[in-house]
Nucleic acid binder design. Structure first.
Lengths: 157, 157
DNA sequence: TTTTTTGTTCTGTAAATAAAGAACTAAAAA
DNA sequence: TTTTTAGTTCTTTATTTACAGAACAAAAAA
């Protein structure tokens, strides 16, 4: 019937969206927000309107609105418009992926500064702990450095 | 009075534990679990009993018990015992930091495999999206590789 | 101008979470 | 053997979250 392996079957697609949605939940998104991500990853074409998403997911407008806005907020998705068409077409902003990784790295970096400040204020009564803390800070700095380097290197490619 | 900058003042320490606790909450821990982490980061000596933690944080036994177990679960803290003393002395398992980073990296790697599988099943109708998805996957693989390398390099040091 | 479209915001609710406090338990101490 | 210690588990409560559904709003279309 079909010569390829794509999601020609709606039920199959629905199930895949659910399954990948469940996997995506571990990154801290709500069930519906995770399914929005998952749907936009699997859907063809890869951009969908508010109502297409709402309908496919069988969810309320408010839930979809909040999910979309949360994704827009952190740059996971974006939308484009077409002249003569009022609708917004939402899509996974894959171009923004690197920037989001950078932002997460920054969060780690900031917390490392907190730990550095803690170390500076600790007494010399527990040198072993202080040494291990210093080691963690150094490791984390080293890793953050490598992540930054990797991002730069990738951008140059 | 004191020649150094350590937390000689209890109120000062309590406030620092709260402040760093708030910062730590962004990594998905509950308020009390975040304060347990924060306390064990700042406290001297760096290991504390269940009851010392409970008392310092002014929290219930159940809340502290659950917080501690959640940290034990993901390897953030550990405890040691001393013969002739029934109590467990909890401390930040800083030695385990690298392993926890590795585990987070694995999570990213696993999700990358999910995306790789998605790409394999997508049709050829949206080549631009597919190309960007491939780019994200490659970038993420590259980054994961670099993280692994960094961890190995650090271990060899 | 009225109506339709494309959402957003508000209100209510069910479920999940965080934590307190009390009851409980296993091991050690007395 | 009884009591104490060092927690764990159960029960209850307050808060938060996720979502539905309805009311609302702004712009475009008719």
């Amino acid at each position: 019937m079909h010569g390829n392996n794509t999601y020609f079957n709606m039920d199959n697609l629905k199930q895949r969206v659910e399954d990948i949605g469940v996997v995506y939940e571990q990154f801290g998104k709500t069930p519906i927000a995770s399914r929005v991500f998952s749907f936009l990853l699997l859907a063809e074409p890869s951009y969908k309107t508010f109502d297409e998403i709402r309908e496919f997911l069988n969810a309320s407008k408010s839930a979809v609105s909040n999910a979309i806005n949360s994704h827009l907020q952190d740059g996971t998705i974006n939308y484009k418009t077409f002249s003569g068409d009022r609708k917004r077409y939402f899509y996974l902003d894959l171009e923004n992926w690197k920037k989001r990784v950078e932002e997460y790295a920054k969060k780690l970096y900031d917390f490392n500064n907190v730990m550095e400040d803690v170390l500076k204020h600790r007494s010399n009564n527990d040198i072993e702990f202080n040494n291990k803390l210093k080691d963690v800070i150094d490791f984390q700095n080293f890793l953050n450095q490598k992540i930054d380097e990797a991002i730069i290197k990738w951008k140059e490619k």
